[in-house]
Computed example of a mutant assay.
Amino acid sequence: MTIPVTVVGAGIIGETHVDAVLRHPRLHVAAVVDTDLVARERLAGRAGAEAFADLAGALTPGGLVTVCTPSGLHADLAEQALAAGAHVLVEKPLDAALGPARRLADRADEFAARGLVASVVSQHRFDPASVAVAAAAHGGGLGRLTSAVATVPWWRAQAYYDSATWRGTQALDGGGALMNQGVHTVDLLLWLLGEPVEVFAYTARLAHDDIEVEDVAVATLRFASGALATLHATTAGNPGIGVRLQLHGTAGSAVIHDDQLEYLHADAGPAKASDAVPVSELRGAPKPPDSFVLGHLRQYDDLVAAIDGGRPPGVGLRDGLLAVAVVHAVYESATLGRPVKVAEVS
């Protein structure tokens, strides 16, 4: 029996989720929800699903709701779905605002006790390169983790922000290059290095007009382990190049570049990159044109396994909350001009 999926939000990311669900043998698209009549009818027709103007009429207890709306609506829609007895997958970030994100994450145990799976999209945790590096990091193959360097050097033309009234707004986007484009990389840093303690940051808006958010962010993070990391995210880096994450330890190092494994040196487990992932996942290998959909499909595999097995998903609500808290700590530090403790961000 397949699990009915309701996709909330018929924009670009909603289309990606529909494409992923249509490929999954255990899922089918039952409904598409959007306030825009043309958008919802178009995507519902493509998916062979019903179209709804609001979530209330599209909910199926025991089904799955995927939230793909502007970020400032995420937590409220997720809570509505969970209250109706549906599993939930929320697109990143968990919410634009920290308050709603925390309110939702604080109920994680309650949802789990009711047998509901609630997850946040962080599909790059399931990339073979990320899995290999995490195995080396968490398994001791890199020794004591000491530092990391992460950069998201992307480009978004002014037309990107002009394409929707919510883009680049504090209320619905929640932030700019870091909250929207860089939060995946923030999540990977936290997954690999653990609990962050303190952040010092600068942000700027240098290449775009009529937006409320940053298009450049740089930060230094200090972790509970003592490890340090630098983080850079921009939508002002024309023409845009691949995301790169370097992880260093006393026994080895690893580099993920554009979601592929560029380098691995470890003294336990696979010793080098070619031993850790298939050739197709090594840096420089041709990437299939649907690689973005495949990344989401891997997370759907995890979600279905969690639903079937009654286990937590690979990315939980508290993971999503921590990523949002770190982004807000970056913004607060940049505003105040001083280091900010992540635990003190409100």
Rank of each mutant, 00 (worst) to 15 (best):
G240N: 12
L322D: 04
A56W: 14
Q170N: 10
T146D: 01
Q181W: 10
W155K: 00
A81L: 06
K272H: 14
T16M: 13
H232T: 13
V304H: 08
L228R: 15
L142R: 05
A177K: 02
P288A: 15
A276I: 09
V33W: 06
V32H: 09
G269F: 09
G249S: 06
R156H: 04
P196I: 00
G226I: 11
D209W: 12
M1K: 03
S291N: 15
L37R: 15
A135R: 04
V152F: 01
V8R: 04
V216H: 06
G249R: 12
L82E: 04
S71I: 09
A217D: 05
A83D: 15
G139A: 00
L282S: 10
V33E: 02
L193K: 02
Y263F: 13
A30V: 00
T203C: 06
V315H: 11
T16V: 12
G176D: 04
A51V: 07
G314R: 10
G11N: 04
M1E: 09
A47F: 12
A150E: 11
A268Y: 10
A10Q: 08
D215R: 13
R144I: 03
S280C: 08
A118H: 10
W166I: 01
L145G: 02
V29S: 07
L206H: 02
E332T: 08
V65W: 11
Q80N: 07
D95A: 07
G176H: 03
T250Y: 06
V186P: 02
L321H: 09
K272F: 10
A53L: 11
L188A: 03
L264R: 14
L192G: 05
V218P: 06
P286F: 12
D187H: 13
R40L: 02
A49P: 06
V90H: 12
T165K: 08
V326S: 07
Y300S: 03
Q181N: 11
T6G: 05
T169V: 02
V38P: 05
D36K: 08
D209R: 15
L104E: 04
Q181T: 10
T146A: 04
Q260N: 04
